[in-house]
Design a protein around this nucleic acid. Structure first.
Lengths: 258, 258
DNA sequence: TTCAGTTTGTTCGAATATCGAACAAGCGTT
DNA sequence: AACGCTTGTTCGATATTCGAACAAACTGAA
């Protein structure tokens, strides 16, 4: 069903940074023709997901209804929240949880640094695996064949002047993550942003997610980050990992409607 | 574009209570044929929004990416969060914000009672206007003509034995909300659940949202709720209302990409 | 177990909606 | 004001969707 795919692609093309789009914007952003984009946008507007003022289309609150499908009572974000909060309280930095979603890492839960209550902002953001700490942790769980195929597929973008883009170098980085058991990013994604991530491993040994802490280059050096963040993250990731068994049992269907 | 509409309807058919669906489930839930539902589900699975185990389709984290389109930096949920938190801290009860979305009230932000950090759970939930406190507040802003059309459209569901379902009675209820400036619900939506809601009015006098506090019948009586919750909600709703001007100025496009 | 009855999943030609090119309308620039 | 370019819209050829029919699985009773 091409129409559905196009429509969803257009929805995803919106972001906190792109809060409005014209027909042409949507067409180029989603990689379709203007005619298709127009039909999608019109339909989405009719359904109440977008608003149209004659020139620009804007996201409407109803889009939230699409994601409320995910996040059941025993979903990963739910389970993770106490651990993310614990880590944040100890580190005083934002702590996030990302899972694999295609060739990207998808942030499913977060505990913000300063503010006590998150609004779901930035949740659902998808970032390429090669350029984020969480992504590299997720990559580190892949076998060589899968990694090779991945690196064949992608073409790395230069985000900042610190970005590693040479595929050989990236493979080396992932190898290192496999060895060390954690990944760091130093201003590769955004200037001034430094992150460290560790895997969340379930009892079968599968990497089900990556937990990361992000900080400012002004506050914490990479060495400090490794020294002071790593243990806290490891501990909370381990705690979360132990709980994820219930997620798996959730798959063979026992409980249903309340 | 029918295909897109059907697909979105199917996505919305999932909920925290319905975390898995068969082809037939999806067909009846979204009001289409099994053939259509099947194509949608297959497409959604291929795109990574759903997972399929041969029998059941389940939501995947990628659905979060669809709603991250909404919630820009200056969105209503963002602006509301401090006020919701303030109200919650004072009342020690969950405080929510809902906006109009078609014939339903859609929860766009919430501050949970006990837990410090929300996970976005229940965000995006849409509830019929006639049976929720927030919904009745939103209805109270409508003129008679629009109300008449609304009551012609709907056919109220019996949710609990306290539910008001007779249309005449509901109209009376809405009239009362218009007069009083707040709405209450007493176990009409769910047994044991009691809520009170007030409008959030912008400086032009438009009702842009409804703010509500929910409590348990075990803890607070309706009278207590009105006496002790109303002022706090009013105050925070007013504070939020003053800020919503920036939402409107946001509509004529000044600032764009960061 | 076996066998109807019923529900569910899948297939395939008829019919509809989509696609892409061509047209029209803005918009900024010279 | 005229030009070029981008953007928005229309319309017939074409590929997709729709709905009915088929097949498979499940349910419950004998």
């Amino acid at each position: 069903m091409g129409g559905l795919a196009k429509g969803l692609a257009i929805i995803e093309a919106f972001s906190p940074h792109r809060t409005r789009m014209t027909v042409s914007d949507a067409a180029s952003a989603s990689g379709t023709t203007r005619a298709s984009a127009r039909r999608c946008l019109l339909t989405l507007t009719e359904l109440g997901y977008l608003d149209f003022d004659g020139k620009y289309f804007r996201p409407q609150p109803r889009l939230l209804a699409l994601s409320s499908a995910y996040s059941g009572p025993r979903s990963l974000p739910q389970l993770a929240q106490p651990f993310l909060k614990a880590a944040r309280d100890e580190l005083h930095e934002s702590v996030s949880l990302a899972v694999l979603s295609g060739d990207k890492g998808l942030f499913v839960a977060r505990s913000e640094a300063e503010r006590l209550v998150t609004t779901g902002i930035s949740l659902g953001t998808r970032i390429d695996l090669y350029c984020s700490a969480t992504g590299r942790v997720l990559l580190s769980a892949w076998d060589d064949e899968r990694l090779a195929a991945y690196f064949d597929r992608i073409k790395p973008d230069v985000r900042t002047r610190h970005s590693i883009v040479k595929k050989a170098a990236l493979r080396e980085v992932v190898k290192n993550v496999q060895k060390l058991g954690y990944a760091t990013i130093d201003q590769e994604l955004e200037m001034g942003l430094r992150s460290i991530a560790v895997p969340v491993v379930d009892e079968r040994g599968n990497v089900v997610a990556a937990m990361s802490a992000s900080t400012s280059t002004a506050r914490v050096s990479t060495v400090q980050m490794i020294n002071s963040f790593l243990l806290v993250l490891k501990a909370n990731a381990a705690g979360l990992g132990r709980l994820t068994a219930s997620l798996i049992t959730n798959r063979d269907d026992r409980v249903d409607l309340a």
